[in-house]
Nucleic acid binder design. Structure first.
Lengths: 210, 210
DNA sequence: TAGATTGTTAATCGATTAACAATC
DNA sequence: TAGATTGTTAATCGATTAACAATC
């Protein structure tokens, strides 16, 4: 069955629902109503139902959604069938924070390599991941079949490193640098800018002061 | 002059434009066309012009926007007149990464305190910021007039800590934990979820594989 | 049944883009 | 002038919400 393209926001929420559902399961909860799931995320029950409609899941009874089934259905939609290998590019404070965060959490996404310039890190394990030299990006990406890169390098090397990742055949990049990147449309790019987030909070806090 | 409410996305882009413009200024560029600014961010020139229209700035000549003036106008819109004090709650890898990132960068936003449970950090400087005990959140927030909190604590203490921050009178929270938070509407909440971002990249990478 | 809940269509809201007159 | 650029209105697109029939 070929799946229709999901709205971006729905994909994001499905990822979040799944984690909440896993918590519910761990607590022994077998069914959950749309309004319960909605309250846990400060959104409306209609939105939850619409998202679930998109993935074609139905609850059958009026007892709410079956937690276990829903977890599996979401997994079937957003997970890849095969494992997807991930690399951290730049294993400084941020790189280590992200790595520590993910290690052992998700089954289909595996952080299989880190890259850095620091000779003290190269060829060692850092936060549980083998660190390679930046010089070997191309080889290691191919050798380990890495399709996704998390970019946590200093701003001045962001553009150059991205160029090399694209050349090496990476398919998706999650960019934590404050440099806007240019990639071909065949590479999926997700950018997160901490400074913007903080300035945004500051702006809305100021506004309220009115 | 009372400023009209800006769209959220416009606020985000203004923050990004400003940093690009500061780079341009540093490179001695005095004027910039809408299409140049657009190309630097992979967006359209129309969008840039519309954002600039929102803040009521005009270029006067057909020589593009005056870089310096535009920086100032954006600052006048998104910055607070007074300084805004920021605290990092939880100064682990992520907290340190963020702190290092911001230190000395922005003039109106100041990270003035960190909080942690680790006795080795309390009452010391960590990444250039004084670290206080979590037990003293309420006092220090008031004493130092902290209006914004960056939440980088472990998931299991996220909800409790948020409760205390709200009680202490915080006005805005930037949440990096994977726990969705509940705050009164008077507190501006911005959430960033790394796991969702990575799962989203993975989903779209998979899709392309078709 | 009456009440709670779901799934879905239509309406609304917000953000982006197309189109174009005005300006230098 | 002709060409490039801007500022702005109208049209489009995408996401959320309101409304409601169907189900248990």
């Amino acid at each position: 069955m070929k799946m229709m393209k999901l709205p971006e926001k729905t994909v994001e929420r499905l990822s979040i629902y799944r984690r909440t559902l896993l918590d519910c399961l761990a607590q022994g909860k077998t069914h959950i109503f749309s309004h319960e799931l909605a309250n846990l995320h400060n959104i409306t029950a209609v939105q939850v139902r619409r998202d679930i409609m998109f993935i074609g899941y139905s609850s059958m009874q009026r007892k709410g959604y079956d937690v276990k089934e829903l977890i599996d259905v979401i997994g079937g939609i957003i997970d890849s069938e095969a494992r997807q290998n991930v690399a951290i590019i730049g294993i400084g404070n941020l790189g280590r924070a992200i790595t520590t965060y993910f290690m052992g959490k998700r089954s289909k996404l595996n952080i299989v390599a880190a890259f850095d310039l620091d000779p003290n890190k190269i060829d060692r394990m850092v936060s549980g991941v083998k660190c390679y030299s930046m010089q070997n990006i191309e080889e290691v990406v191919k050798e380990k079949d890495i399709s996704i890169a998390i970019l946590t390098v200093p701003a001045d090397s962001a553009a150059g490193t991205t160029e090399r990742l694209v050349q090496a055949g990476i398919r998706g990049i999650l960019n934590f640098t404050t440099v806007p990147l240019n990639v071909p449309s065949s590479v999926h790019l997700e950018e997160y800018d901490m400074i913007t987030s903080l300035e945004k909070v500051a702006y809305f806090v100021k506004k309220q002061a009115g």
